[in-house]
Nucleic acid binder design. Structure first.
Length: 824
RNA sequence: GCCGAAGUGGCGAAAUGGCAGACGCGGAGCACUCAAAAUGCUUUUCCGAAAGGAGUGCGGGUUCAAGUCCCGCCUUCGGCACCA
């Protein structure tokens, strides 16, 4: 035997097994007639911004543990991968380097793909998709047209979030603290005609169905989604307006406080405000114009400042309170949002903080109508918002808040002045982007026919070449300048018309990609309906919590629409969700500018793939962040070598029956198999790794001790180590498997169920406590009786010394494990 | 401000209400070696020579028994934030 055969050389075994796996394709799924039960395990697909980084390494290591676990457990696991390859970074990088976004993107994909292969992810390489392929985005367009037919895709003009740096609009979800999520520029507003998806039609279902995910999704994500959708209930109330035929409707969650309304406020940037101003005096009109200018100039950062003074303009007009006929002055202000509720509110300063501040700022009356435990607003100097008893409120007097809300709605309904209503924080999804590198919107604008959908048999509307186009952001889509592309005949009347030159938000791409994996190359359908029934929804989704709102909400929305169209038979796309944490370095996110960037390729070159993957899994609970400064890939490599060496010490032949093996070692293996499976299924990968380490330690002792390497139980244990290790360290595991005399394929060798009789415990350690403190231990039979155990405890010298002559108050015996003696 | 989660050795972390600190990193010691590396073994919560005592952010409570359950704080992190 050569020296090398006993040397663990990670790099040599990586080279050795990769080509073998390429040949074997152990993880191909969807083979005709496969009898195994299915499991769809999905990792969030990467954006090809360069080579894989440490964050990818963690996410894919953890996703792979799950996928490989179910494969070992005998499931037909589908575990595909693809690239979310449209989007701004490609375009920005391309502009910066003077390249074609396409070339840049596909070069990066090739690099990531090679890295994933080396990283030994258990992906099904026959199911790959790339969203910037016309073959993929053709179906974005097709789905857009289905949405359009259902009235779920529509165009409207409104003030949209505008990033002056990216020169494009942003969905609400892409504005973080008033800043562009991509580039941190201050987001401004701009009036534009844009395409929207009508997510709000699904708001109730998106909210209510979160209950079905309870326990299977992280509670944090469910909370974030609930907050984001933000359903509130209350009433719409109609106020007659002097000098206006139509009444103004306001939304309130507190119709009980209707008698406390002392003025009305209309969002200054709403159409309604413009109309009211036009009826006001020239003086008011002038002040409105000036105020509106000022408000439009301010951005969200300023708007959100908490100590901001309330501002506004009095229209001089009046509304009539439908519950008591009082005349209320109508003000215009920016503290009321134009796009929530009706864009107008009834102000109850005594019982709403914002209204209170406004009333104080402009010296408007404050009338208490709810007596709460907090006290009276007039004395407190602030609004009271809690429950209480209604006063100064006519027929509502004496009721509590909930009763008064119901009663007020009844009264309003009876008079035809209002009704119960609900509202959502969620807004419709703005999907138009004025950029090149995305899915063209399949609509043609015709002077005569208006919006004309591109006929489905003319899809895809392919992106023209970027050559000759100015991709620099300038506020309108670069595609508008592609003359040959943009000018077409109207499909309806044949006259000259123009293509819509905007592209879709890339979140459209990722809202249904999990279905496309079922037939990534299909030319005839977005996805096969029958296969979707079999494979979908995704059993286990793995990805970062950064997508807790955006991506997951949109994918849930798409799924519900697809369900309603009859294309899928389920309503939630991802049955279980695991959010892995981030990889940090010295306490903060890695970045070049911070100078704390750890390069994945360097780590892999230094420690090997297996050690890095194992480190990711062993560092802690998967949802926690990993600080790379706190973990030890070197330690992982050492452990792997230790485990690997075991295989060389097994001298029995493969196929040897384990039954005659050493019982203690067999029990060790059986307990391991039980605990390991539980650890993995509950996502305690770090504990699972610890269990392997324990088995390896025990096995080392057995081999070096009296049991010896020839005992069949030692083979049984070593094979269990190899199989379990294959989830974390596929190369090491495969090489162990070969050294143990097997054909390649440890990944599918199967983790056996533990033999029940080996799990039966005959003896254990009973503990004796005195006043809750440990004083003695005994090895006892599990069948020991309470009396026997009590006697054993009372006879112990240690126990007697601890009691020290005090009177015994109580003796708790929990045979066979514990005795607790309480003294007085 | 509102909502939520989390606080355990020098460090990453374990622990169905029942032996706190599994498993590792780091440290210390020993064996092998001319020596080192590698490997193996021992040890490592704190105070104490030991006996023993203390100990899971702080203060209470429930319980024979609390890291775990309840109440009140503190700190950190995350989400939302003029949504009427």
């Amino acid at each position: 035997m050569s020296e090398q055969a006993n040397e663990y050389d990670v790099f040599a075994i990586q080279e050795k097994w990769l080509p073998v796996w390429d040949e074997l394709k152990p993880f191909n799924s969807g083979v005709e007639g496969d009898p195994r039960p299915k499991k769809y395990v999905l990792d969030m697909f990467p954006y090809p911004s360069g080579d894989l980084h440490m964050g990818h390494a963690e996410a894919y290591a953890l996703g792979d543990v799950i996928a490989r676990y179910w494969a070992q457990k005998g499931f037909n696991v589908m575990h595909p991968i693809g690239w979310d390859s449209f989007g701004l970074p490609a375009e920005n990088a391309a502009i910066k380097r003077g390249l074609d976004p396409k070339g840049w993107t596909y070069d990066n994909i090739a690099q990531q793909r090679a890295s994933m292969r080396r990283y030994a992810c258990s992906f099904d390489w026959d199911r790959v998709l790339v969203t910037s392929d016309p073959m993929y985005y053709r179906w974005n367009q097709w789905l857009f047209l289905q949405f359009y037919k259902k009235g779920l895709a529509y165009r409207k003009n409104s003030n949209v979030n505008w990033c002056p740096s990216c020169q494009t609009v942003l969905a609400n979800e892409q504005v973080v603290q008033g800043l562009c999520e991509r580039c941190d520029s201050v987001v401004t507003k701009k009036a534009l005609t844009q395409w929207y998806f009508k997510v709000t039609d699904y708001a109730d279902r998106l909210l209510d169905d979160l209950d079905t995910l309870e326990g299977n999704w992280p509670a944090k994500v469910l909370t974030m989604q609930r907050n984001w959708i933000g359903r509130s209930t209350g009433a719409e109330v109609e106020f007659e307006i002097e000098g206006r035929t139509a009444p103004i409707s306001v939304y309130t969650t507190r119709p009980d406080t209707l008698h406390g309304a002392t003025f009305m406020v209309v969002a200054v940037d709403s159409d309604l405000a413009a109309e009211l101003a036009s009826q006001a005096t020239p003086n008011v009109r002038q002040r409105y114009q000036a105020y509106l200018e000022e408000v439009k100039k301010s951005n969200d950062i300023e708007r959100l400042a908490t100590d901001r003074k309330k501002t506004g303009v009095d229209t001089g007009l009046h509304a009539v309170n439908p519950i008591n006929g009082e005349k209320l002055p109508i003000w215009l202000s920016d503290y009321v949002l134009a796009d929530y509720g009706t864009g107008a509110i009834m102000a109850v300063p005594a019982h709403d903080d914002r209204d209170y501040e406004f009333a104080k700022a402009f010296d408007l009356p404050i009338r208490t109508v709810v007596q709460t435990e907090e006290g009276d607003p007039a004395e407190l100097g602030k609004a009271t918002v809690g429950d209480g008893i209604l006063v100064n409120s006519g027929e509502l007097n004496g009721l509590n808040k909930a009763e008064a809300i119901d009663r007020a709605i009844e009264i309003l309904a009876a008079r035809g002045k209002g009704h119960a209503a609900k509202n959502f924080r969620l807004r419709d999804w703005l999907i138009s982007r004025q950029r090149y590198w995305g899915t063209p919107i399949p609509i043609i604008h015709c002077a005569d026919c208006g919006e004309v959908p591109v006929p489905e048999d003319q899809l895809p509307v392919e992106l023209p070449s970027a050559a000759g186009l100015d991709l620099k952001p300038k506020g309108s889509s670069p595609l508008g300048a592609a003359e040959a592309w943009v000018n077409v005949a109207c499909p309806s009347c044949g006259k000259p018309a123009k293509r819509d030159s905007d592209t879709m938000d890339t979140f459209v791409d990722s809202s249904w990609y999990f279905l496309r994996y079922l037939s990534p190359n299909s030319q005839t359908a977005a996805f096969p309906v029958d296969a979707a029934k079999q494979w979908a929804p995704v059993d286990q989704y793995v990805g970062g919590v950064t997508h807790a709102i955006l991506h997951l909400l949109y994918a849930r929305f798409f799924t519900k629409v697809l369900h309603d169209i009859g294309l899928v038979d389920f309503e939630e796309p991802f049955t279980r969700l695991l959010n892995q944490g981030m990889v940090l370095m010295n306490g903060s996110a890695m970045s070049k500018s911070r100078g704390n960037l750890v390069r994945l390729s360097d780590q892999l070159d230094e420690h090997g793939v297996d050690a890095i993957r194992l480190t990711m899994a062993f560092a802690g609970p998967p949802e926690d962040d990993i600080d790379w400064a706190d973990v030890s890939p070197g330690g992982s490599a050492k452990f792997l070598a230790r485990a690997w060496r075991l295989a060389g010490d097994v001298t029995s032949a493969p196929g040897t029956s384990f039954a005659a093996g050493n019982k203690d070692v067999r029990r060790l293996t059986a307990a391991f198999l039980r605990d390991f499976s539980e650890s993995i299924e509950t996502f305690k990968f770090n504990v699972g790794v610890a269990k392997i380490m324990e088995l390896v330690n025990g096995l080392r002792k057995a081999i070096d001790g009296e049991v010896g390497g020839a005992d069949p139980a030692v083979r049984e244990a070593a094979e269990a180590v190899a199989k379990a290790l294959s989830l974390f360290a596929p190369y090491t595991a495969e090489d162990m498997w070969a050294k143990l005399g097997h054909q390649p394929g440890v990944a599918l060798a199967g983790l056996p169920e533990p033999e029940q009789e080996l799990l039966v415990v005959n003896n254990l350690t009973a503990v004796v406590q005195v006043d809750g403190k440990l004083r003695d231990k005994f090895d006892v039979s599990v069948s020991i009786t309470e009396d026997e155990l009590r006697a054993l405890a009372m006879n112990s010298e240690n126990v007697q010394r601890a009691i020290g002559g005090r009177e015994i108050a109580n003796v708790i015996v929990r045979a066979p494990k514990l005795v607790n003696i309480a003294t007085k």
